[in-house]
Design a protein around this nucleic acid. Sequence first.
DNA 1: GGTGTGAATGTATGCGCTTACATCACGAGC
DNA 2: GCTCGTGATGTAAGCGCATACATTCACACC
Lengths: 369, 369
Amino acid sequence: MSTPTVYDVANHAGVSIATVSRVYRNPDTVRAETRDRVLAAARTLGYVPSGNARGLASRATGVLGLCFPDNLQYDEHREETQELGHEAHHDEADLMIYSDEVIRGMERAARERGYGLLIAATVAGDPASTVADVAGRVDGVAVLAGTVSTAELEVISRRLPVVMLAGPRENPALDHLDHVEVANFDGQLAMTRHLIVDHGLTKLAFVGGPPNSPDGEARFRGFQAAHLEAGLDIPAEPRIRAGLTTSSGRHAIGELLATLPERPQAVMFANDQMAVGALPELEHRGLRVPADIAVTGFDDISVSRLVRPALTTVRQPMQELGRHAVDLLLARVADRDRAPVSRLLQVSMVRRASCGCRVSHDHQPLNGS
Amino acid sequence: MSTPTVYDVANHAGVSIATVSRVYRNPDTVRAETRDRVLAAARTLGYVPSGNARGLASRATGVLGLCFPDNLQYDEHREETQELGHEAHHDEADLMIYSDEVIRGMERAARERGYGLLIAATVAGDPASTVADVAGRVDGVAVLAGTVSTAELEVISRRLPVVMLAGPRENPALDHLDHVEVANFDGQLAMTRHLIVDHGLTKLAFVGGPPNSPDGEARFRGFQAAHLEAGLDIPAEPRIRAGLTTSSGRHAIGELLATLPERPQAVMFANDQMAVGALPELEHRGLRVPADIAVTGFDDISVSRLVRPALTTVRQPMQELGRHAVDLLLARVADRDRAPVSRLLQVSMVRRASCGCRVSHDHQPLNGS
DNA sequence: GGTGTGAATGTATGCGCTTACATCACGAGC
DNA sequence: GCTCGTGATGTAAGCGCATACATTCACACC
């Protein structure tokens, strides 16, 4: 009646439970005829091995974990945008594109290596229990920066491998985790330099993310560095901080134009979502992009090449983050004592129309059709 | 040295393992002072309860599963688009937006109910083992239609609750699963009727998905039904079948115009991704949307309101699919013997510019700023 | 002072599997 | 004919926890 176990299968097939287990773990140590008998019994009984029991006995779960922030709370404009119909819904979705990509990359890599993926968003609220919850179920866990404090992660990392994604090792003495980082600084530096040097723009405004976003802060430092390099005044803070969402990008435009004595020649957004949200608002205000004002983003999400003008941005390998997470996790499963490593993933500039590099858009016609 | 267990914590705190367990399961049955002692010991030892052991002992994992297709293989144009730089990457991402939304909805709902989420993509290859793998680790599993055969699911459903997402109950005698469906037929019927009745268009072309996509097929039947209703010739098959991706949507345009004697007045795509890919290609060929040719999609992914012209489409509640999955799963966990249920989620038409309902785009200016 | 009562804690068992070790059958080699 | 190796299978001991049940203790009550 209830869920069948190895014992039921063993009885039904006339073998011992060890043989049943071997059929699933080491099929080639079992005589072919016996194996078939066991599998037949399993099929007729509807037997499915218990992952829990297996995990307990073999002290490995075959599952990796990923904690990411579900940071709706950052978007202070959510309420206001309800009048736009499904806008709020979309906004929510937009914000998550980044996590989605990391999840997908990690799921694929995990599956290729024979692992499952347990995902858990952590809302800013009860962080400790959530991550401990997944920690108890997996062989290793990746954590997107900003989700859980490094101190907590250190505790958890005593039990299993932990890798921090998109976050720097702030204090080498306290932080013995593996890290995967993205060259945010370099990317924003190059992009800012591009605007200054190649397009001759000097009045640039940076729209940042919330202060607790390591990505956003690193990008701003790249923005500053380009100013230093070019001998321009170095802004101490992002001109505006916004919620990294489409709607907050749109709202940032109003705030920008209202508070600035002089219109900037370019607005550099900390991510693509905001830039994408800003474009229609600029259009509505009669500002032509890039003629009147250039716009750039960061990430290269798929929307960015579909909007008009197509968005100039810095492409970061979001799925690769997930892949590297799996790689580092399994390397550490194999050797718990290896020295902590940091991997830095490179980014690349994608010049499209919104900075002035292409005339209208970047649609490439199909060959010969 | 190695991972601490209840025994270690019990020793360290001077209590029995039962008390340690109670501190985590039923904190209020333990004296406050004792509880603190145990928690202190746990903290200094770096104790994290083993999900496996807990699951084994309590016969429940606290985790739900979701299987979804990772169907890159459908996109026959992937190779050709490499010359477009990151196009292939984007295409891949595009295709997954739907799954991503379902995952997100399910993750949120699961978390709210105190469950974790184990996700596993199933490539068309070794389906059985993958889904059995997750089945062994979870308290219930949701499966996106097209991922696993109903027969296999029936076997698995003898062990744990299974719900099928976005797929109809084809044979009530063989299929005792719970289902969550979306009103694809109704949505496409309404949209097609809209083009015929409100816009006076009669020459419509439908670009479908692969034949094994239940969503795509149901939408095509809605398309047919609208023709029947209007007394128009009823097409027996979608004019073209494509891969549901942005690039396959673009390619569909060429194929459409090349094979059709007369240009259709409207192209209705089985999903938004394809429609979004088609827009720049139409533009490139000098066809104005919607003046020369109307375009519609299905899903209402977030890009659809950002492209120009903004896409008229049918909105389906993708996240809701995930939420309902959790709901049905937990209801069946509570009562294994309840009758199989099917939930039908409603869709809604979103009229934007690409069908001719709005002049240029649907950007709503901000109030008073 | 004996007894009943309830709260706090301990004891002991089993969840379903993996795996080291034991056993067994069967030939090969001497 | 006996030993020994080898492949196939069985035996039994946990893995780390939850929980039924037993025990202890303090206290109230008659």
